[in-house]
C-alpha cells in the first residue's frame, strides 16, 4: 500500500486552536500542501491577519509576519517591493479584508501588487466572539446584529471580491467554497493558480474562500457545511471572476 494522503510537512505537527469544523484549518492545510508541492518554503512569506488566524504562525513552518488589523496588503506591499523575487501572501478574514483594511486591499489590488491574498469569508467576526462582519448576510443574526442584519440599518453584504475583479491591477480573482471535498480540491487549485499568477508577475491575485464558522453560526459542523452550500453560496456565487491567462488565450 502506498500513502495517498498525509499531513503536509510545512504544517507543524501540533494541534491547532481552531474550533471543531473550522474552515481556517482546512485552508491552512491546503496552503501547506502547496508550499510543499511547489517547493516554496525557502521563498514564501505569509502575512496573517488580526482575527482567528492571527496564530497561523503557530502552524506554518515558513516565514510569517504579524500585521495590525487590516494592514496586510500594505505590509505585503512593503515586503514585495523590498524583495520582488519572494512570494508574498496575505491571509485575511472578512473584517480584516473588507472592513478595516478595505483601503489597503483595494489599493494594493489597483496597483497590481504582485502579491496574493487568501480571503477567508465566514460572514462573521470569529475571534472577537461573533459580531457582524461586512460580509454578514441579510437577516443573519450576530451578537451585534441581534435582530438579523437589516439593510436599512447595517447596509448590504460587501462583495469586495467582485469589486476587485473590476480593477485592472487584479490579474486573477476567484471565489471558492469549502462545502465539500470536490470544492476543497477546487480551492486548492485556485490558490495554486494565484501563486503561479504572482510568480509570473502578472499582478494581484485573490482567492476568496467561503468558509464555515460553526461556533459563531451556532450550529454543528455538519450543519455549517450544509449552510455554506445552501445559503452562503447563493449570496456569494463561487467561480472565477477574472483570469488574465484566459484573456491571453482568446
Amino acid at each position: 500500500m502506498k500513502i495517498v494522503y498525509t499531513r503536509p510537512k510545512c504544517l507543524k505537527p501540533v494541534p491547532n486552536h481552531y474550533c471543531p469544523g473550522c474552515g481556517h484549518s482546512i485552508i491552512h492545510r491546503l496552503i501547506c500542501e502547496l508550499v510543499d508541492e511547489m517547493n516554496m518554503r525557502g521563498r514564501i512569506i505569509c502575512i496573517p491577519p488580526a482575527g482567528c488566524a492571527v496564530l497561523a504562525y503557530n502552524y506554518f513552518d515558513f516565514d510569517v509576519c504579524e500585521s495590525a488589523h487590516g494592514r496586510g496588503c500594505a505590509i505585503a506591499t512593503g515586503f514585495k517591493r523590498a524583495q520582488p523575487d519572494r512570494i508574498i501572501f496575505t491571509y485575511q478574514g472578512d473584517g480584516d479584508m473588507a472592513a478595516i483594511g478595505t483601503a489597503e486591499t483595494l489599493h494594493a489590488a489597483n496597483r497590481g501588487e504582485k502579491i496574493t491574498s487568501i480571503f477567508v469569508n465566514n460572514a462573521v467576526y470569529g475571534m472577537t466572539g461573533g459580531q457582524m462582519a461586512p460580509t454578514t448576510m441579510i437577516g443573519q443574526k450576530t451578537t451585534t446584529s441581534p435582530y438579523g442584519r437589516r439593510t436599512e440599518v447595517e447596509g448590504y453584504p460587501l462583495k469586495i471580491t467582485e469589486l476587485i475583479a473590476t480593477l485592472p491591477g487584479a490579474a486573477y480573482v476567484v471565489r471558492t467554497s469549502l462545502a465539500n471535498p470536490a470544492k476543497i480540491r477546487e480551492t486548492k487549485k485556485a490558490i495554486k493558480k494565484a501563486f503561479e499568477v504572482q510568480m509570473a508577475g502578472a499582478g494581484y491575485s485573490l482567492v476568496e474562500v467561503l468558509s464555515p464558522c460553526p461556533t459563531n453560526w451556532k450550529v454543528s459542523p455538519r450543519e455549517a457545511f450544509a449552510y455554506l452550500e445552501e445559503k452562503m453560496e447563493k449570496e456569494y456565487p463561487i467561480g472565477v471572476m477574472k483570469d488574465y491567462t484566459a484573456k491571453k488565450d482568446k
Partner: peptide, 19 residues
Amino acid sequence: LQGESEIASINMVLGAAAS
C-alpha cells in the same frame, strides 16, 4: 511608493523593515 494613506505607508515601511 506613494501609499494610499499614512496608515498604509507606515505599514509598507514595516514590511520593508522586516525584509
